[in-house]
Simulated assay, not measured.
Amino acid sequence: MKLRKVSQLFDTLDPSPFRETDLALQAEDYIVDRALEFSDRVPIEIVIYLPPDELRKTHVSDIAAAVRYYFGLRSHAVSRELSGLFKTGRLSLVVGMVILFICLLLGWVFAQRMTEGPFSRVLSESFLILGWVAIWKPSEIFLYAWPPVAARRKLFDRLSRATVLLDEDDTVSPTAEGANG
């Protein structure tokens, strides 16, 4: 990542101390996008190129610690998100299974008690459909929703352990803006 100043790496509106400050959204997106290009087995190395005068003013350990700390916080936040998703899934599953049971029971009762005809058949099938719809959300959570969240957590965890290096870049012009890639 090529920067004109170290301050471009961090969110200037975040009042936290330097090592605890958020990364700028563009910097986070750039780092995450590049990290996604690599296999899970490859260790991540983040190289930040700065002009010589800016590099002399910068402490490598402070920048590296701040970047790793930020991604550690992101990993922890996504872990909480995943825990909340599973908690919602468990609660939805219990509620959905109860509703499914009640609907199947009511459908069976209406099918047994009512005379054979289109109305009783529609009512019985409607209860069956309602019951299956009730377990739609937990099925979605446990089958499809959690893997992308877990993958994001794994990526942030890898980024929190990344090697962060600062290097000199003579090609960055004084008028360059943002992360040039």
Rank of each mutant, 00 (worst) to 15 (best):
F127C: 08
P51A: 15
P17F: 13
K57S: 11
V149T: 14
R90A: 14
A66D: 04
E168V: 15
P17H: 05
L123D: 03
V60P: 13
R74Q: 10
I48G: 01
D53I: 11
G107N: 01
V94M: 09
I99A: 05
F38G: 01
V95M: 03
K5C: 12
G72N: 13
V94Y: 07
G107I: 01
L165Q: 15
D170T: 12
A150S: 15
K137E: 12
S16V: 06
D14T: 05
D22E: 06
S139Q: 11
V98P: 02
R4V: 09
F18K: 09
P147V: 11
I141D: 03
P15C: 07
P43M: 10
R158I: 00
K57A: 14
G89L: 03
A151I: 15
I46N: 00
L159P: 00
H59F: 15
A111R: 07
L165Y: 12
R56T: 11
E116G: 15
P148L: 12
V172R: 04
E54V: 11
L3A: 11
V172H: 04
P17K: 12
I31R: 00
L85R: 06
I99Q: 02
N180S: 15
D14S: 07
R56C: 11
L159W: 06
L100I: 03
V42G: 02
D170H: 13
A162E: 01
R68I: 03
F86I: 13
Y30Q: 00
M114G: 14
Y30F: 04
D14G: 05
E177I: 14
P15N: 05
I99M: 05
D53W: 07
S39L: 08
F10T: 01
D167V: 14
W146R: 06
Y30K: 00
S160G: 07
F110A: 10
R68L: 02
L36H: 06
Q8P: 01
V122L: 14
T163R: 08
A27Y: 00
Q8L: 05
Q8H: 09
I129Y: 07
Y69L: 09
S92M: 10
S160D: 03
R152P: 00
S126H: 02
I44M: 08
E20Y: 03
S39K: 10
S39D: 11
G72D: 07
F142E: 02
S7A: 14
I31C: 00
S39F: 09
S39P: 05
A27N: 00
A77I: 10
G89S: 05
S173Y: 14
L55N: 05
L36V: 03
D14C: 07
D167P: 01
Y49V: 11
P147R: 10
K154C: 09
F71G: 00
H76T: 09
Q26A: 07
V78F: 08
P147H: 09
D170A: 15
S61N: 15
D11Y: 13
T171R: 12
L143G: 12
D14W: 04
Y49I: 08
A65V: 06
L166A: 13
L3W: 05
